[in-house]
Nucleic acid binder design. Sequence first.
DNA 1: GTTTGTAT
Length: 819
Amino acid sequence: MEEQYHSEKTFVLGRPIASIFHNASNMYSIVKVKIKETNLKYQEKEITVVGYFPALDEELHYRFVGNLSNHPKYGLQFQAEAFEREVPATEQGVIHYLSSDMFPGIGPKTAEQIVKTLGPDALKKIMENPFVLDEVPRLSEDKKMTIRTALEKNLGLDRVMIQLNEWGFGPQLGMKIYQTYREETIELLTQNPYRLIEEVEGVGFARADELGRKLGITGNHPDRIKAAVLHKLNQAALSEGHVYLEAEQLLPEVKELLEQSQPVEIPYESISNAVIELEEEGKICGEETRIYLPSLYFSEVGIATKVLQLVKKNEESRNFSNDEIRKAIGEVEEDLGVTYAETQAKAIEQALNSSIMILTGGPGTGKTTVIRGIVEVYARLHGLSLEPKEYAKKEEPFPIVLAAPTGRAAKRLSESTGLPAMTIHRLLGFNGQEKEEETDREIQGRLIIIDEMSMVDTWLSHQLFKSIPAEAQVVLVGDQDQLPPVGPGQVLKDLLAAKIVPTVELTEVYRQADGSTIIEMAHQIKKGQVPDNFTEKTGDRSFIKASAEQIASVVTQVVKSAMSKGQSIRDIQVLAPMYKGPAGIDRLNKEIQDLVNPNEDGTRKEIKYGDTIFRIGDKVLQLVNQPECNVFNGDIGEIVAIIKAKETVDKQDQVVVSFDGNEVTYDRGDLNQITLAYCCSIHKAQGSEFQTVIMPIVRSYAKMLRRNLIYTGITRAKNYLILCGEPEEFWKGIQRTDDLKRFTTLRARLNPFIEDEAEVDRTGQTEQTFRADAHENILEHEEPKEMPELPPMLTAETAPKIHPMIGMDGITPYDFLDE
DNA sequence: GTTTGTAT
């Protein structure tokens, strides 16, 4: 069958001599191959092969199967649909092959010995009969095993790809599946085709169900229904943040999913039975009418138990008298040359005398200042040195532990306190491999401060709380109005709503100058309102009306005029919710790059990576954490050098980026770690602030526009905020909060007496109070009273004739940036 | 019809 598979198609057998491109995330590769044999009508000695494969070994031969095609720009290329490693059959080849890292423990000496005994076709002989290895003198059983399993493994790829192909997966997806399951692919997928949905990106329920059908799992088959139930719960958790689903909601969704995928009616009874069986198997948890994934159920229960324990200990944690603390605060104020406002001092006091407390407040209210204060006062009262180095000699570890859910937040925390800080993952010693419930490490620390708690999901919160020693003091810091965690749950929000953890809320804003209308607007947005004059220009903000098509032009004009006013491009940040479309991040980045860092005559050195062009001077954004280089996801830097392949020692293009003076070099293969940063997503900007923020809001973003997204975006602006786009969409986005409600039961577990959120809202003194008011307001004024009367929009007909900035409400480019 | 995080 293998023969037939090859003989029908054209192939190239050869040795890769140079990798032109390799994308490690999807395996898309372009390789120059020296041809040894081919059935193509092709005279050259070398050919460019394009397809999906892992990094190839330049010492080996490969057989590529596919078709010759003519690329408009790069000429003749061989599009490979499949490939396999050609088992070498020359003495030298076999020795090299056996001593490669595919066969750990086998060195050149052993390899030579094998070839000496079995001849140049040693590999073929071993594959036909593994026992021929017994003939080789002084070869240990271990080594024999190594060779047999490695050969088996290598053959695995071909076998897997052929099977996947028969199952209807193309080379790209096939490669991805193989990356996930390796030689176990066929076995694992035959057992359970539905695991593809959760484990291989790009495979949805329908696709996996199609494979299921081929494997005989059809219609009412319990495995099929169970898979659908689990998929729905997973999807609810991952895409909507729900910790559970009501059975009432789950069952019809499962029914619909199954009936859409195959035209067979699935009775509710079958689904209920599947749910019962899943619960018996421990694959889901039921509580009253709610259905949970076990990991989420046990996480919630675990968090609640630990938090209640800590809260209970709060009474015992009055370690210091108020006088002692106030005195220490005074000393710290003097030392650091700061003055704490009363609420800030109160927060420090609370932190010192609690086992657990929450410090909350909006952007610019000085949460970081208070963290620093807590650390300083804690050290003073406990007679501790804040010099971590001094602890290296001693037995006991440094007692203050600082952590945050993202690398960037951890870096900021460390910078603002002068103490080491790390990601929660690192703190817990994760390595990316472990399964749930596997971490059992206890955090070595007496004071544990977690910043940006609003971004910590239910799973991670559980791991974190589990690792907190019973005698530790915990300070959770965060702002529940910013974007919720990527993962399921809303732990900070639930903790606040339960009202059992001592909480200090900072409300006064120190970041903006007095009379800032940005912060005023932010406060209103938090309540679901918009200032009456939101489309008018104030001292620090403005709104330029424009359609989606005009956005690119308006944004570049604003950037240009801001720069002409002396602002640097580093201080100007364009924020948008999504990448695609005429007003998307990608397009805006290109336009702004053309404006501020062009290459009009084509003489400047540049490097092309995918759809992006990088030039010296470009503002770029780091996309992954690189703690060794002190660069983290979300950091912004500037390209300071581009070194072309021929100029470097390793014949590789290189880009050097300076992050505030810290220079980091990227090889071509690492360029997927950076992207242009003139415009970035609002999500990415969370936790950063900029002098000037330009934020387009148009209808094409509608799917993304929500209150907390807009709130997060506008609160990134320190001095100037320039909104542009469609005022109605801005207003509508601010009204949207309902669909981001996450189903969780943490609040109820912590405090069963607070049952109804509306009631909390009416009695509570925190943000919820505002919320409730806002909600009533919205209900009262169904017709948007807050939405001011708007001048007519520009139409598509008039737009191109008008300079984007001029004539709109009389705004000229110089109008909105006065001092 | 869409964004986002972490660990070798």
